[in-house]
Simulated scan of single mutants.
Amino acid sequence: MGSSLRLLGRSDTAAVRALCDLDPVTNVFVAGRIEGAGSADPHSMAGELWGYFRDSTLVSALWNGANVIPVNAQPDAIAAFAKHLASRPRRCSSLVGLSAPVLDLASQLSTWPDPREIRANQPLMLLNRPPRIAADPGVTRARKRDLDVIFAASVAMFEEEVGYSPVSSDGGNDYRRRVESLISRGQSFARIEDDVDGWPAKGARQVVFKADIGASSSSAVQIQGVWVHPSRRGEQLAAPGMAAVAMAARREIAPLVSLYVNDYNQRALAAYRRVGFEQIGSFATVLF
């Protein structure tokens, strides 16, 4: 029978979900996409799922959308995925996932342009119990009326984290829609105060802490987009803010709360450890 690679569809839904369940924290993004769409049908999702089979059994998968994300990818599957990706125009902005398979995949994409940056060691952290510290009561779900200030903070976070502006290509319309979608789904959290250092306009309401539930399934969530206003850093806002987000996520969405962080961000790592997050692995992100 041997091995094969093909685009997955509705009939593969149960098999892909079982694959994601092997590691629900690592695979939360793909699991969440399938749960949200109701199936692995590519017409229902903003991306494609490709499956690698051994003797007709699905053993690995690859999400190909705005990001490329391997699921349970072994070396032979990585080689097949790399050959497939190399034969098509690049559509993603990054490769992301467990460090070893992501770096292996990136090394085999010789036809793609050189990455802009490789973040090879991003601690993957998990909280599977109540936070160790008290939550900040001022951190609540963002509301529709908060869109402008949440969007401004999200742009600042993106520029600081990724290194370029998310509003440069289309005036920010796509990114604004993403921020608005997170708010409408109740997955954007923030502490908002009045007039923080006159930014971006004196007298305006401003975000001093924010975080998003960027991916979620019935088993796990992944917190993304964590940001503290530059003028308020050092005031111990991040840890109680993260405790508030984690409590809400565990109470209302899933028991496992995860995140991944750049290894050089020692301040963030310390804050997450205060909350009770523990490292369980390492992610890598390859940026194009």
Rank of each mutant, 00 (worst) to 15 (best):
A40G: 06
N173H: 08
L95G: 06
L22A: 11
R250F: 10
A271G: 08
S94Q: 12
R141L: 15
V68Y: 04
D148C: 09
P255A: 06
L7D: 01
Y264D: 11
E159R: 02
I133V: 14
S4D: 09
F209W: 13
K202E: 06
L8E: 00
L269P: 05
A31V: 02
V221L: 03
V71F: 01
M247Y: 08
E252T: 13
A220G: 04
P24F: 02
M242R: 07
R250K: 10
L105I: 15
G234Y: 11
V149P: 03
G198D: 09
D21F: 06
E160A: 14
I133T: 13
V286H: 04
F151E: 15
Q224W: 02
R88V: 11
E159M: 03
A142P: 11
Q108P: 14
Y272N: 08
D146N: 15
D12C: 00
T13K: 02
A120T: 12
I213L: 06
A220P: 00
H229F: 05
A77F: 12
L95T: 09
A271E: 09
D212T: 00
A80L: 06
A239D: 14
F283D: 11
A284P: 09
A249D: 06
G172Q: 02
H84I: 03
L237V: 15
M242H: 04
V196E: 06
R33A: 09
A80W: 10
L127T: 09
T285F: 03
A246D: 03
S231A: 15
I280T: 11
V68N: 09
G47W: 03
G171H: 07
E235Q: 13
A246E: 03
P200R: 02
E159F: 00
R205D: 14
N173C: 03
I133C: 12
P42H: 03
N262C: 05
S282D: 14
A135D: 07
A46F: 04
R273W: 00
Y175P: 00
V71Q: 01
A80Y: 11
D170W: 10
V139K: 14
S4E: 11
H43T: 11
A254F: 07
N173K: 11
Q222V: 07
V102M: 11
L85M: 08
P130G: 13
M1Y: 14
R176W: 01
S258L: 03
G51P: 07
L182S: 07
D76M: 12
S258F: 05
G241S: 12
L62S: 10
V149M: 14
V28M: 01
S258W: 07
M157V: 04
G276Q: 04
V167D: 06
P200G: 05
G186H: 13
D212H: 05
F81P: 14
A120K: 11
L126A: 10
A135P: 10
V208C: 10
S99C: 08
R10I: 01
Y175A: 02
D136L: 13
V30K: 01
E180Q: 14
L8A: 03
Q236Y: 12
L237I: 13
V179M: 13
A77Q: 07
N27M: 04
A271V: 04
I34C: 01
A46G: 10
K83F: 13
W227E: 00
V286T: 07
V71K: 00
F209Y: 15
N262A: 10
N121H: 15
A77W: 11
I69N: 02
N128W: 04
Q222A: 10
A134R: 15
R274L: 07
A254L: 07
P131L: 05
L22G: 08
Q187L: 13
A201T: 05
V167P: 06
G9H: 06
